[in-house]
Nucleic acid binder design. Structure first.
Lengths: 268, 268
DNA sequence: AGACTGGATTCTGGATCCAAAATACGACAG
DNA sequence: CTGTCGTATTTTGGATCCAGAATCCAGTCT
């Protein structure tokens, strides 16, 4: 089990800490080993502010506008599980933590809302999107349809050099562990496979659908994901049998979908 | 400099302040009063501003937040062609035209950017999105894939009462002329056909794809659209042959796609 | 005469301030 | 003791103000 220590360093837990027990709204205990650090009510905010400033500095290189930086930071926080699904997002707290004004935070939240990662309640603020089982199943249903089409097109127009590039990217993705590097490598692989340059909207829609469930995967890679290496997918694609490849893909997505559904309810 | 007259007049939308003569209009009075203030050296901006004021008047009541109202106004302006593709969107001009501050305009623009209707250039402002021929063809390719799937599912799970509702909605849509009423009726029809309530994301994605080309259709309904009545589609669906229905749909989309491509370049 | 550079103007993006609404807490009454 | 109403605090949404960047125009140099 991956240790949640890194997550606790974000300090973006917005629930009030009245006692010595520090949990976020999803009930996941945040850094039990760091519980003794918490002395006063504001300590978590202080810690979060310090970490986020450091992380904002880390993210700040290469970003021209503050709003886009905040957007990346918040997206990363949601996808990494630092901001749990259902968690209330107070603009003031986020702004203080990142070290900017509330305005770019609002801009970033609007962008994230359009992507479906957060939802706004009228005058009641924003929260990280939660997914019902029906929504998860629809997401994977749509992914099956879209990625099936993309895969058929990829096989239909496959060239030797592109297959070579795919193999290299697959090896790279399978070599990565968890976290950022894996996600990046996986995205590069699927971008190449699904014709990211020739069909930008398709790859964008697929990426958005994949993002929506990102918050539920937290840091953990499920067995079904592990069992399905990208190299194997390349092998099926290289075979040239579109139906077989789509079948492999559909089974894989179905397995991942079932795993995500199980993660929705912690009780099992 | 146009002095902001009654900007502090709150309760614009929801609650009506004990206004003397001003009803729950969100700064519409201000907008109409400032109609002649804009510099007259840009005629196209003049035209856009007048249209925006008209739209703002129409959309004035029934919205809780000013930002959402601005969003609806701008979206309608883009889809109706009042703001042409490629047109530069200056926040100050838009804000004055609608009669609000620049901030809700920025929020609305961010939302519209996420939907793909406008694009932001780094420090150079926003403009209405333009579509290349490749993008148009990809849009209709994806619509064929998604709507084909949706249509098959609809036929698979069709019930008599739903067929009856579809027929009523088709008659309603075919009876409408152009403009708002037609778009609304058409959306209701496809919402019912594609299972809007059971597959919200699918219908949302399809609607977004349809929106992207809305600005190029302007007010004109092409012959191919005219020739394909919604009632005929219902008849094919009622037949129960999924392959035939998908084929009809694909041909229709292909025809519309070709028509839109022709509209991209005025030369023919 | 044309091109390059520097300044001025304009526009975007960010911060701070203010008004309104919702929620939470407390007081009072049944 | 409990439920309801009123007030106060919190928080969101909007407007105005300010700084930085980009563009445009003019002046000068080649």
């Amino acid at each position: 089990m991956p240790s949640p220590v890194v997550r606790s360093e974000w300090g973006l837990v917005t629930t009030k800490v009245q006692g010595d027990r520090l949990t976020n709204s999803s009930g996941i205990e945040v850094g039990s080993g760091n519980a003794d650090i918490i002395d006063a009510d504001r300590v978590d905010v202080q810690r979060g502010k310090a970490s986020l400033e450091q992380l904002a500095r880390e993210f700040s290189s290469g970003y021209r506008s503050v709003g886009s930086m905040v957007y990346e930071v918040l997206k990363d926080a949601i996808l990494s599980g630092a901001l749990a699904p259902g968690e209330k997002l107070r603009q003031e707290t986020l702004a203080e933590a990142i070290g900017v004004s509330r305005l770019p935070v609002r801009s970033a939240l609007i962008q994230l809302e359009a992507e479906g990662l957060v939802i706004f309640h009228e005058r009641r603020g924003a929260m990280v999107s939660t997914l019902s089982e029906e929504q998860v199943r629809e997401i994977y249903e749509l992914r099956t349809v879209l990625e099936g089409f993309a895969l058929r097109e990829a096989i239909r127009t496959m060239t030797p050099d592109r297959l070579a590039r795919l193999r290299a990217l697959a090896i790279d993705a399978d070599a990565q562990g968890e976290g950022h590097a894996f996600v990046e490598a996986r995205n590069r692989f699927y971008d190449e496979l699904y014709g990211g340059e020739s069909r930008p909207m398709l790859t964008q829609i697929i990426a958005d659908l994949r993002l929506k469930v990102g918050g539920y995967l937290l840091g953990r890679r499920m067995d079904s994901v592990h069992g399905h290496s990208h190299g194997a997918l390349v092998d099926v694609v290289a075979g040239g049998d579109a139906d077989a490849a789509v079948d492999v893909l559909a089974r894989h997505l179905q397995a991942v979908c079932d795993g995500v559904v199980l993660l929705l309810e912690p009780r099992d």
